[in-house]
Design a protein around this nucleic acid. Structure first.
Lengths: 255, 255
DNA sequence: CGGCAAGTTGAGCCAGGTCAACTCCGGTGG
DNA sequence: CCACCGGAGTTGACCTGGCTCAACTTGCCG
């Protein structure tokens, strides 16, 4: 955990992005925030300790992936949420006991924002406030959507939804339907409430059905978007369906 | 949808509760908000229409239960989230397409807050802002916790968690472990991602194991809190366990 | 190029979904 | 007041998606 060098914020994603929180701050706000905040880098597998969380409960992610994990008594583990660059995690007043543990899933750079300054900025800078509020709302609706996925969908359907979630959240909006999967198979399985074996089998099935193509372990390309969408939406009749016309399918416009 | 009579707000839960949003507003704020907001009563089963949602995207619940429902292509239905009195649902910029439909699960009184006034209050009144922010955070963590429940827990465990969720959220904190279940069996099943039959079987099992007692269809009493908690936490060895001392169990302090 | 973790494949099995029959209960109308 | 009705909930019997376990392959890092 180190002080944040003056030039660091310039390259940080939280600042750089037009929608980024720090991008909304004026010179004095940003220097005040920087002086009292800390930056740190987490290796895959390291948890944000509960003591640190008391001092530094507000965590903005500038790169990498952080997961919210819940552990059951008998060792079953669940990744309940994924936080990506730009997300601001507000753990004020939360103990890991109640809410799960924050664990990095890859090399992750975070900015530990000073809660007092954060609070002050939220109160005085309406633009920054709006960004933070909308980020929190997104987290809420994402979690709710994810609940819906977990509740009734089958394995293949969950995986299809997840692919769209990746596409929706990924920074670089490329046109050729290439998707970067930011987590490993095991993590993916824990996030979707299934077994790594099942994840593997589902990827295989989609590949065999020419719906996706596995470029490498963490990059896929969607070959047949409408069918993938139908699967994600829980349509059971995607198998014996002859594709006449892409646009013929009526499809929910997620993504 | 009607204008809000002057005296109505005095009895409203959103105001009355010390932590309530409207309770933080001064006289002019509250009258401004009231004048431009609308109150309405929803019968069980009615949805908040998408057109209304455009005009009135901010919904505060004063009584009853509202669910966020997702519908799959083949008719499978999921209740992804439950909103209870005091919750403020901010649907600005969301279409039901993306986020699911808001459907009342009982006779529900809501206050359709004027988005402009809401926004203005959020920007100028730090106390009200804090209430709204914390409410939204709670929604987020609730949804994340719920995801964790759905992902890896078994039916009995999910139901146990749900009972604690009810306890945590219920207004009247009674001491004798009486829990009011605010939704019907079918809804409960949809919320927990299981079948009504399974819900029924699980309640039966808990009752037979003397962990809970079913007072009537919507009221239960927890007879053995530690065991219920162990089940909710995913402990598999609750069956052949002889209770020597309540406090002997090491238990996570949810609830 | 060895060693280990991550991922994949196959075979068998079980929790819970499915379907059907039944009971319970609140509302309604004669 | 009671007979009727329909929806909600329950119970039982059966069946299947995906979990489990074990063996294998792949890929990464020193």
């Amino acid at each position: 955990m180190t002080k944040i060098p003056t030039n660091k914020c310039q390259h940080c994603f939280i600042n750089a992005d037009a929608g980024g929180f720090c991008g909304q701050l004026d010179g004095s706000e940003i220097s005040e925030l920087r002086n009292l905040s800390r930056s740190s880098t987490l290796k895959r597998g390291t948890a944000v300790g509960s003591e640190e969380l008391l001092m530094w409960p507000i965590i903005a992610i500038s790169s990498g992936v952080i997961s919210m994990q819940h552990l059951l008594e008998d060792g079953r583990k669940t990744i309940a949420a994924l936080f990506l660059p730009g997300d601001i995690i507000d753990m004020r007043g939360m103990s890991p006991r109640h809410s799960g543990h924050l664990i990095a899933l890859s090399r992750t750079e975070v900015c530990r924002m000073s809660p007092t300054i954060f609070e002050k900025i939220i109160e005085t800078n309406p633009n920054a406030q709006r960004i933070a509020w909308n980020n929190l709302r997104k987290q809420t609706y994402r979690a709710i959507d994810h609940s819906a996925d977990l509740a009734k969908k089958q394995a293949l359907e969950k995986l299809a939804s997840f692919i769209f979630e990746c596409r929706r959240r990924q920074r670089s909006k490329v046109s050729d339907n290439s998707i970067h999967v930011p987590v490993r198979r095991v993590d993916l399985a824990e996030y979707l409430g299934m077994q790594p074996e099942t994840v593997s089998r589902c990827f295989r099935e989609m590949e065999q059905r020419k719906i996706i193509q596995l470029m490498d372990i963490s990059n896929i390309k969607i070959l047949n978007v409408p069918t993938l969408r139908r699967i994600a939406n829980g349509d059971k009749n995607t198998k014996n369906l002859r594709r006449t016309n892409k646009d013929h399918f009526k499809v929910l416009s997620y993504g």
